[in-house]
Structures are given as C-alpha cells and as structure tokens.
Design a protein around this nucleic acid. Structure first.
Lengths: 223, 223
DNA sequence: GTCCACTTGCACTCACGGGTGTAACGTCCT
DNA sequence: AGGACGTTACACCCGTGAGTGCAAGTGGAC
C-alpha cells in the first residue's frame, strides 16, 4: 500500500456539482477513517452519487485522495486569512487584538473537523505520499497562511506596535506559541479541548510572544 | 473500523522473548503501514514467529496495537531522559549545552524511525482510540519527559544560569522552539531534514529561548 | 516417564472492499 | 430526430487479510 503518484491535474471530466459532492464526502471519510480505512462505497453514498460516477471522475482511490488533499488546504488557508484580516488590520490594543485573533484561529478547527481530520491522515501517510504532493500541500496551505501572518506582523511592526525585525520568524513563533500549543495537547484537534482551556493556552502564548516582540518602551517625548 | 478498547493489562501469556519480538515487529509495521494497513502475516514473519503465536499472546489486532503503543512511549522517554542527563547535568556554557542537547534530541527520531512512525499513526488514529489509552500514552511518554526537562531547567535556574520562574512553562517553550520546530516541517520526521537544517532550526530555537529565559545581566562586582 | 504450556505450519473460512462490465435512462446540443 | 455525454443501479470478479481449527512437535517441570 503506497501513495506515490504525481500531482493530479485538475480534470474536467464529469459534472462539476457531482465532482464537488464527491470531494466533500471523500474529505470527510478519508479524515474519519484514514486512507486505508476509507471505503469507496461509503464515499459514494455520502456524496449521494453512484460509485461508478466516482470512477468516471477519478481514475482510482489514490487519485481521489490526492485531489482531496490539494483542494482542501487552499480553502482553509483562505478562511484563516480572513480571520487574520478581521483582527489584525486596524489595531488599537495590540495584545487584545492578538489574543482575539489567536483565539478565533485556534478554535477554527472545530468548525473544520473534516479538514483537520484529513490533516492527521496526511501526517500519518506522509511517509507514503510523494514529496511533490506534500510540498504542494504545504505550500498552498499552511505556508501560504504563514506568509500572510508574517505580512500582518510586519505591518504591525511598521506602525511601531511591535518590534519585528524578522516577520517570517515572528510568524513562526506566533504559530508555535498559539496554534501549535493548542494543537499538541488536543492530538491535532482530534480530542477537543474546552474553550476555557484553549483561551488559557492562547493568552499565555500571546504573552510570551510579546515578551519576544514587544516594542521598546514608548519613549516619553519631552515637551 | 474503530479502536475503543480499554487499556490492555500486561499479560503473561506465552514466552517473553517471543512477546518482545512480536511487539518490536508490530511497532515497525504499524508505524510503516498504519493501523488498517498493517498486516498480521507481515508482523508474524518480521517477528520470525508463527501468526498463530501472535494470537496466543494477544486476543486480536486491536489488543496488539494498544499494547505496542503503551510499551513504546516509556522506552523513548527513557532515551530522551538519558540525553538530557548527559547534556544538562554539568553545564559550563549554558547556550552551548542547550544547543548540544537540543541537537541530539531533535536528531534522535532518526534513530527511532519505527517509534516515530508509530507516533504518526497514533495521531492519525487519535479520534478512534479511547481517551484512556491516549491519556496513558501521553502520560508515560511525552509528558514524563517534559517533566524531566522541567526539572533540569529548574535546576539550571537554581544555579543562576537561567531565569526560570516557571519550569513547566519553560520546558514547554523549549520543546516548542526546538523539537516541535523540527517536527513540523519534517512531517513528524517522516520526511527527514538534512542535519544542517536541523542544526539551524535548533540553534535559532535556543537563541529565542534564551531571549525568554536568559538571567539578568551578571552584575559586575565592584572591587 | 508424563503432563502441560507453548509454538508451529498450514489449510481454511469469510467478510470486506477496490475496481469493472453492462444496460438503461436523462439531458443537452445540433 | 439522434448522437454524445454523464449518471445510475446492480451484479460481478477477485485479491487481501483477520481470525480459526487442528495435528504435530518441542521443552521444561515433577
């Protein structure tokens, strides 16, 4: 059992709405059951589509799986960009905004259970997935958002609200101290934490982040 | 397909050496192929044991899997404790010792490919594994070592080489900035990074850690 | 010796699931 | 009207793999 195929080209076989239904159901089932555990009959029935139709759209299980992977990451990156834009564009209280952003961000996986279940599956299969596909996935998903976060932090730094000499590094640290810190104890969100627990972790994380990136004490302007 | 059984009691059926061979082979195969993908015949042959013997020791595949999980975590925690002891017991140069420790720590997964492949599988199956088992695994494995790391950092703090008001938090941060920072881009060590890359990440991580926990400037003693 | 626990090889059952073949039906285009 | 295309239901093939039954063998305990 291995998954080493190349990146599947988005094909135009079949009707788009069926295609979407299949991808959606496949994402859920692959996430829920893993690659080997996923059952094509189940996917078909959840997509309310004939199994034969799946094979009209995708050549086989592997093709379907790879297509699902690459489609999902961009979507979630979009949603996360949205959250960042809402909270980080017009900051008045830096710490408060960072906390608000991080809380919503770290709670978002609850709303994308299907997607993050799939992320777990990707991790599990990583050794069996071709590097090209893994690379494409990271690039369109997590890294795309990380760059966006770096951009925001850079801008905030530009306004003097943070001291951000290296936005990329800052984004990495913010990610580690908030999102990853929630992800770890919850087994990639498989075992959901309480909302209070998430908040506590995130608030601590932001405080630590500020110890690293708080701007030099506002110089009192002589007048 | 689900794994919801309770924690398997260490049983005394069968001969211990066979038992060990089975566990070892099972760990490799479950790690390599995932739970659903693992094949009992393959495990039997890699353990150089008859398949029937496996069923003399374990009631079924699930029982075997859970036993493997709980056995492995303690072992790796031991190894990591060892690495920590060697590097963090008699420190002369704080930064150098921390880097040395973290480099060896972050490279250790290469030597336990089987184990960390299994960790990926555990993550993937987390939603299907009983919380009791997950808890036991974390407790005897990662958390046990995290506490050990906290103990070390506390001692180092006690000697004035670091400023560690909260050893637990410090251990968490050290973990995030070094080990986890290597783990993330390598897909849980499934896609090994180059040694140079690991070093770079770890050195950066330690530097950042020191920005958080460096002791107040050594007061120059007037004389 | 004889009992007992363990192991082994092998054949076997059986459920599951990926993938195919086919014939019928709908729809849209011309 | 008549393709062309997509979809559907359904039966089917067949490899795979979990788990069992059994008969024969090994080795230690008493």
């Amino acid at each position: 059992m291995s998954i080493k195929g190349a990146i599947p080209q988005p094909s135009r076989r079949g009707q788009p709405d069926k295609r979407r239904a299949i991808l959606h159901a496949a994402r859920d089932v692959f996430g829920r059951e893993g690659y080997a555990g996923a059952n094509l009959d189940v996917i078909a029935s959840e997509a309310e589509v004939s199994k034969r139709t799946i094979y009209n759209h995708y050549t086989d299980k592997e093709d379907l799986f790879l297509s699902v992977i690459l489609e999902g990451s961009t979507q979630v990156a979009e949603v996360h960009k949205n959250i960042a834009d809402r909270h980080l564009s017009n900051i008045v209280d830096t710490e408060q905004s960072l906390v608000d952003f991080a809380v919503e961000w770290a709670n978002s996986p609850a709303a994308f259970a299907g997607h993050f279940a799939l992320v777990r599956t990707i991790n599990a299969e990583a050794a069996r997935i071709s590097p090209a596909v893994l690379w494409a996935w990271r690039e369109t998903g997590p890294l795309a958002f990380q760059r966006e976060l770096a951009r925001h932090l850079g801008l905030i730094g530009g306004r003097g609200l943070l001291d951000v000499p290296d936005p990329e590094a800052a984004a990495t640290h913010f990610n580690l101290l908030t999102f990853v810190s929630v992800m770890q104890p919850s087994f990639y969100f498989a075992v959901p934490l309480g909302e209070a627990e998430v908040s506590e972790i995130v608030i601590d994380g932001v405080k630590t982040f500020l110890r690293l990136y708080a701007p030099p004490r506002h110089p009192v302007i002589a007048h």
